[in-house]
């Protein structure tokens, strides 16, 4: 890896597990929970955040020396809002049904704390290349969690993955449904997203005891 030094690589891999934006830094929870009832929506949301965070971090990092610190929040919000409008229009043009499913949550990427958090904590103090790596690293960490939650909620809740019936057809009683398996419709409801993330945090912290809070 000539392009990425060890330190750079760490910027990408760290947020995947030990410094995960959702489970450790507690950023960006809102959208992580609301749209994970389907795997497809989770993936699209992760890609959208990847785009916004990667480019936004670079833009803020390039402007870091000319932004007066008093109005930096407004400047950051404008940069994010512009990028989010691009995402929103692209989604509306190429995946209209999906943009209906995500509804206001595309707009809420603007106030997704991950983005403001990374701008404040990293992009304002580091150069563009490092900021870009940090941005995509954190977006990957966020996306990883979203995809795990979305995977379990869709699999257990409606027995499908990305719309394919992996567990068989519940009406014709094929696949596992032949053995009296029933979908757990509760997984599709909002509260189970919280409990799923709670369980992921539990598993992660019992594997890595250094993360335990006292």
């Amino acid at each position: 890896m000539g392009l990425l030094s060890k330190k750079d690589l760490k910027l990408i891999t760290d947020p995947l597990a030990d410094n995960n934006p959702v489970t450790i830094q507690v950023l960006g929870i809102c959208s992580a929970l609301a749209i994970t009832a389907e795997l497809e929506a989770s993936i699209v949301m992760s890609v959208a955040v990847l785009f916004v965070l990667g480019i936004g971090n670079v833009v803020i990092s390039l402007m870091r020396n000319i932004i007066p610190s008093k109005i930096r929040i407004i400047v950051q919000l404008i940069v994010v809002a512009t990028l989010v409008i691009i995402v929103d229009l692209v989604l509306k043009a190429y995946a209209y049904q999906l943009s209906k499913t995500l509804s206001v949550f595309v707009g809420l990427i603007i106030t997704n704390c991950i983005i403001m958090g990374r701008f404040e904590a990293f992009a304002l103090a580091n150069g563009p290349w490092k900021s870009f790596l940090d941005g995509i690293g954190n977006a990957f960490g966020y996306g990883l969690l979203l995809i795990i939650v979305g995977f379990f909620r869709e699999l257990l809740g409606s027995g499908t993955l990305l719309g394919f019936e992996v567990l068989g057809n519940p009406i014709d009683k094929t696949g596992v449904y032949a053995f009296r398996y029933e979908n757990n419709g509760f997984m599709l409801l909002a509260p189970m997203a919280l409990i799923t993330v709670g369980i992921i945090i539990w598993i992660q912290r019992s594997r890595n005891t250094a993360l335990i809070e006292d």
Binding site: T23, P191, I195, G198, I199, I201, Q204, R205, S206, I212
Partner: peptide
């Protein structure tokens, strides 16, 4: 509370239970 759940984990689970109540 079990050690790995302390802090954030248990808060998530309680919020989930409260959300069920609010439903």
């Amino acid at each position: 509370v079990p050690a790995p759940l302390r802090g954030l984990g248990i808060t998530f689970i309680i919020t989930g239970l409260m959300a069920i109540g609010f439903m």
